[in-house]
């Protein structure tokens, strides 16, 4: 898939995020939007998955360790055809299958997650299970940068490095903001890359909004043998919605009707530009 197509899908994923969170009147748009391009690339390009057969035995697996950004995952899954996009506004509603945090019973969701630090361990277990079973599939997990403050992340990383799980790709959405402020002011996990290197990972620093760089990074990860890979995605929290960008207030808050209209107008504008780009 070319970059323009990916960008269009990513823009649709962002619309879905904003729509889901608006519908829920709660949720986490900031970190969903910062990771929207990563979600898009994973589900439209990188991973071997089948929306018609979500439990396909030898599919690649994805665990959203930063589970609070479920709107991003759900929107990517819906846009990829795992379930109707029209269901996104039911997010967090009583009776909806779209739970506030990822739940294994949702089509396409490989693991329940949301309690920070736990998703990476499950992903490591999956990668180990794949190797023990002689399976060729890969396991991906996305962590928040604030999540790196959880000790369990490093227990899991130590294990993955020790076991040389080269079928594992750990990704960090480094948007630099957590609830209480910039991560380096709350309890700095920097330097992130050198920490993972010290845990025997191959580390790649990538712009989270550059599909060429992303493509190259995932290729490098797949070709890296004898150690797991960690891709540190340098991202912009709230990316794509003008008033949410790099604004900590939008970590875990839903837009009201007026804000929703502005957000959607921002994304419609980006969409129109992409259409124009396609015609040129």
């Amino acid at each position: 898939m070319n970059n323009l197509e990916l960008k269009k899908h990513a823009n649709d994923v962002r619309k879905g995020i904003v729509t889901a969170v608006h519908g829920a009147k709660a949720g986490h748009p900031g970190g969903s939007l910062s990771a929207a391009d990563v979600f898009t690339f994973l589900y439209f390009e990188e991973m071997n998955i089948d929306p018609e057969n979500p439990k396909m035995e030898d599919r690649d697996r994805f665990v959203l360790s930063k589970g609070h950004t479920a709107p991003g995952l759900y929107s990517a899954l819906a846009n990829r055809g795992f379930f109707p996009v029209e269901d996104l506004p039911t997010l967090r509603h009583l009776g909806s299958y779209l739970q506030g945090h990822p739940c294994i019973h949702i089509p396409g969701v490989d693991m329940s997650s949301g309690s920070l630090g736990q998703g990476i361990s499950a992903a490591v277990g999956m990668a180990l299970g794949a190797r023990m079973g002689g399976k060729g599939y890969r396991v991906y997990t996305l962590l928040g940068d604030g999540e790196l403050e959880e000790g369990q992340v490093w227990e899991a990383s130590m294990f993955a490095g020790h076991r040389k799980l080269d079928n594992l790709c750990v990704m960090v959405d480094n948007n630099n903001l957590q609830i209480d402020g910039p991560i380096d002011q709350v309890c700095s996990p920097y330097p992130i890359d050198r920490k993972f290197e010290a845990f025997n990972f191959h580390v790649i620093n990538v712009d989270a909004h550059d599909f060429d760089a992303m493509r190259a990074a995932f290729q490098e990860a797949r070709e890296t043998k004898g150690m797991p890979t960690c891709i540190v995605f340098h991202s912009l929290k709230g990316k794509g919605v003008s008033f949410m960008e790099n604004n900590i207030d939008w970590h875990g808050k839903a837009p009201n009707d007026e804000q929703y209209a502005v957000a959607m107008a921002d994304l419609e504008k980006i969409g129109a530009e992409l259409e124009k780009e396609g015609e040129e």
């Binding site: 992903a123 490591v124 299970g129 079973g133 396991v139």
Partner: peptide, 26 residues
Amino acid sequence: PERHIDCGIAEANMMGIAAGLSLTGK
């Protein structure tokens, strides 16, 4: 030996690894 996994002194991670393993049929 190939079916025994020592996770080191890290019980929280061990539970998660078990969860992941179970999702691969173990």
